[in-house]
Structure formats: structure tokens, C-alpha cells
């Protein structure tokens, strides 16, 4: 399956706008708005995260645009993964982790007690740093999500979902003859695309990716990056990356984290070429990191 790539609507030259002038008045974050307005359904406001006594995130507020890729960058330990895991409440699985502030999806706070975390995670899928296919067949890996959520009424329907997901993840041609073989037998890049297919099979609205290419070789990385670029037309994607090049290649907006604070956010172009904040400049030029 091929998807034609429309012209990037962030390509227009930006007029750098300082946060105090045009940015919304929350947080200390330096913000540069998009020239083209985007829909925003996912918003984080004043998010603090604590692991026990240790605070990992400080007052993070961030809007995630629809049908675009937002990349989170920053030196290791800066809180970007922590923020990512807040978005589908994967932090719940860590004992003594506490989140305050609010993250809203379609206006509903995902930390509201009335919200069902199972439902939230079916809307917000996740792809992990290391490919983690289940020790089951390729087919069963992809069918897992639809099965547990009861998405298919028949075997044929389930098969359709699996095939469509594998196609969308660009893996179909490679595995169509090996559907019954274990998913762990695929190559690293294929495994990661299998994990993406597994996430897509649930038809999420948001896909979180935690350094999805860090365990892969450059060729596999290129394939995945291309795939992410295709997927952004269909899903809202947040990607954590340690590589500024990767952020430049796949994302439209970028947020820079440092020591648990969101230092600057804006169009990728701006953050990487004309950073406004001093810390961002230092990071981009390699002085910190």
C-alpha cells in the first residue's frame, strides 16, 4: 500500500515569535505557534510527575496537534519518556508514581477517576523502545488487540483487520507467507513494524512512540521513519527521540525537555534552526546533552 505524501504544511518560513509576545501565557516555556492552525484534541496542562519523593516533571503544558508528528527531544533523563508514558497512563504500572495536573483528550481529563484506563489505552496506542513482539505467531501478535477488545465479530473480520494493519505498517509483503511463524523470529526492523501493526490493529487515535528506532540499524531506521511519515496522515503521533536529525525528518512540531521542564516547543523547523531559548540553543549546538 502506498500513500502519497502531501506537501508539508509546516514548510512555510516562520516568523520567530517570542513566547511573551504571542505564546499563551502559561508556564515558563518558550512557545512558537504554527503558522497553519491545526486541530488540537490532546492537551497537557501543568503536569507534574513524582516517583516517590523525586519529581521527574515540572509543570509541563503542551498541545499536541492532530494528524501530525510531534517529537519530544532532550538529553537522557530529561523527562521526555515520562511525559510520553503519562499520555496513556502507562505510569500507572509503576509503583509510587504520582501524576498531578491534567491531560485532556477531547476535553476529558484522562486522569479523571471515572475514565477507564483500558478504554484510554485502546485510543492511545504505544510503541516501545525495544521491539517487543509477544512470543506468538505474527498473526496472533496483530490479532491480540482486536481479540481482547472484541473488535471482530467473525474470524474473517479479524483476518481483514490483521491484513489491513500489516499492510498499513508496510509489513504485509514481507510476512504474508510467514503469518504462522513466531513474531520473535523476524528481524529487528520487522519486529518493530510488527509492533506498530499491532498498535494500529486497535485503530487508535493517538500513537505514542518511545525511541522506536534506538535498537535498530540505519536501514531499518529509515524504513520506520518513512512509515511514520505515512502514518501521520491517519493518526496523531508523539515520538520520543534522542536524535535531532530524526526529529527533523519525521516531525512537524518539536518539544525540547531539559531536567524535567519543557523548555521550548514549536514547529520543528524553528526549534532546530532558530531556537529561542538559550538552553535549546545550547542543546542544538551540542553544548549540553
Amino acid at each position: 500500500m502506498t500513500v502519497s505524501i502531501p506537501p508539508d504544511n509546516t514548510g512555510a518560513p516562520h516568523a520567530p515569535v517570542s513566547a511573551s509576545a504571542a505564546g499563551p501565557a502559561y508556564g515558563e516555556t518558550v512557545r512558537t505557534p504554527d503558522t497553519v492552525p491545526r486541530d488540537v484534541r490532546l492537551r497537557a496542562r501543568h503536569v507534574d510527575v513524582f516517583y516517590g519523593d523525586k519529581q521527574a516533571l515540572f509543570d509541563v503544558s503542551l498541545d499536541i496537534p492532530e494528524k501530525a508528528v510531534t517529537s519530544l527531544i532532550g538529553p537522557s533523563g530529561c523527562g521526555k519518556t515520562t511525559f510520553l508514558r503519562c499520555v496513556n497512563r502507562m505510569n500507572d504500572t509503576i509503583e509510587d508514581c504520582r501524576v498531578t495536573g491534567e491531560i485532556t483528550l477531547d476535553g476529558q481529563n484522562i486522569y479523571d477517576p471515572s475514565l477507564d484506563v483500558v478504554e484510554l489505552r485502546s485510543r492511545v496506542g504505544m510503541v516501545f523502545q525495544k521491539p517487543n513482539p509477544f512470543p506468538k505467531s505474527v498473526y496472533e501478535n496483530v490479532a491480540y488487540g482486536p481479540r481482547i477488545h472484541g473488535l471482530a465479530r467473525s474470524r474473517a473480520e479479524l483476518e481483514d483487520i490483521v491484513v489491513a494493519s500489516l499492510r498499513r505498517a508496510g509489513l504485509w509483503e514481507e510476512v504474508k507467507d510467514r503469518l504462522r511463524e513466531p513474531g520473535t523470529g523476524l528481524s529487528g526492523g520487522q519486529q518493530q513494524r510488527l509492533c506498530i501493526a499491532r498498535a494500529i490493529a486497535v485503530s487508535p487515535e493517538v500513537i505514542l512512540m518511545d525511541e522506536p528506532c534506538s535498537a535498530l540499524d540505519p536501514i531499518a531506521t529509515a524504513v520506520i521513519e518513512e512509515l511514520i511519515d505515512e502514518l501521520r496522515l491517519l493518526y496523531t503521533i508523539i515520538i520520543v527521540t534522542h536524535s535531532m536529525q530524526q526529529a527533523a525528518r519525521v516531525s512537524q512540531r518539536t518539544a525540547f525537555f531539559h531536567l524535567g521542564r519543557l523548555v521550548e516547543e514549536g514547529p520543528t523547523e524553528v526549534i532546530l534552526r532558530h531556537p529561542q531559548a538559550k538552553k535549546t540553543q545550547d542543546y542544538i549546538t551540542g553544548r549540553i546533552g
Binding site: 496513556n88 502507562m90 504500572t93 483500558v118 478504554e119 484510554l120 489505552r121 485502546s122 496506542g125 504505544m126 516501545f128 525495544k130 517487543n132 513482539p133 509477544f134 512470543p135 491480540y144 488487540g145 481482547i148 477488545h149 509492533c195 499491532r198 498498535a199 486497535v202
Partner: peptide
Amino acid sequence: VPLSLRDGSLGLGAT
């Protein structure tokens, strides 16, 4: 069993 499998499943919305 690696923790990542558990995360993978929970991340898909499994109980």
C-alpha cells in the same frame, strides 16, 4: 519474562 511484554500488552489496553 521481560517486562516489555507486559508493557506491550497493557499499552494495547489489555487488563
